[in-house]
Design a protein around this nucleic acid. Structure first.
Lengths: 193, 193
DNA sequence: GTCTATAATGTGATAGAC
DNA sequence: GTCTATCACATTATAGAC
């Protein structure tokens, strides 16, 4: 992608995280990106185009920091890796907060805006399957449907906890503890099967 | 509360469920409620006032259909009652859809709007404690902190599943199955303690 | 590709009659 | 308490120069 587009999308992610999808103003985005409004419409057609491509951009970036960084460190044990992946999204750092916040906003918008639904569903599926695969490494004898269900629950829970965290109703440490507990609970259930 | 206010709040809940908080237009609300815009500002001061009181209204209503209806039916076993309470919010009926949708929207808005945070936190706490109490009836020997954590997770999961359901990424039957599975998982974990 | 206007419309909020 | 009329401004989007 052209550097200018990327620059605008970075600004959009930043702004959505700060003001929300509903609070995103094209003029403000232009200022944040250091370009004119005209240029934004040149690159993205309309406001919806901005949102769509920002969602895509955020997904790519999350994938990068999910997968990335695994090369230098020693490989983790399955259980530890599972926990690491799920706790990755529950960190109070600028980038993660930005991604989580924007993701939550886009998810919430999708309730009323069909445009984003497909992208969202696709990204969610990939994520669920990744978690299910990791669960399978911890519980090799567990049946696939049970793993899929657990993956779906853990990721949905993560979204729920993330939202409470971002809306100020839950401290990040508490959110992380709860997430760890959920992993314990799911693994306890999978052991019984 | 005056009947007129209630009438407007009902319309607001309906409209927020249909268009979202970000899509709520005062003029449209007036039309939906069958009153003038002036009257709305007379009763609610400003747009934020509408949102706050609608949140309150929704909470009250949810409490009513959560607690209500328990008189006529025979008392359920603890496990069944727990399941019933949690599945209550995962039904594809107009009222529940409306409540869940509006609740999710208000939660999402709170990420960027502090005004709603306190009300939201208070309502969440009540809900978490209710679920924790029910869990305690199923697992009388479980320690209180473990029950509280499980309650927090189950309610957060419900919000996450609800969002996916409403945004079209999850069928309601599947969501209900996943919720039941989560209850199993939490109860399995509590048994170990 | 990028910018500077500016058109066109949407939207919250208020004044004042009844 | 309720309505009508309207202001003031915010916001998306486009036209046309460079």
């Amino acid at each position: 992608m052209a550097p200018r587009s990327t620059q605008i999308l970075e600004a959009a992610a930043r702004l959505i995280a700060r003001r929300g999808v509903r609070g995103l103003r094209v003029e403000e985005l232009a200022a944040e990106a250091g370009v004119s409004t005209g240029l934004i419409y040149y690159h993205f057609k309309d406001r919806t185009g901005i949102l769509r491509q920002t969602l895509e951009f955020i997904n790519d970036r999350a994938e990068r920091y999910t997968t990335g960084g695994a090369e230098d460190a020693e490989p983790l044990a399955p259980r530890e890796e599972l926990e690491a992946v799920l706790l990755l999204e529950l960190q109070d750092t600028p980038v993660v907060r930005e991604n989580s916040s924007a993701w939550g906003e886009l998810r919430a918008s999708a309730v009323f805006d069909e445009v984003l639904r497909d992208d969202l569903a696709r990204a969610t599926l990939v994520w669920v399957q990744e978690v299910a695969a990791l669960l399978g490494q911890v519980r090799p004898t567990a049946p696939a449907p049970a793993l899929a269900a657990a993956g779906e629950r853990l990721t949905a829970l993560l979204e729920g906890l993330s939202m409470r965290w971002l809306s100020g109703g839950l401290r990040i440490d508490r959110a992380r503890d709860l997430m760890r507990g959920a992993i314990d609970a799911e693994l306890a259930l999978l052991r019984e099967k």
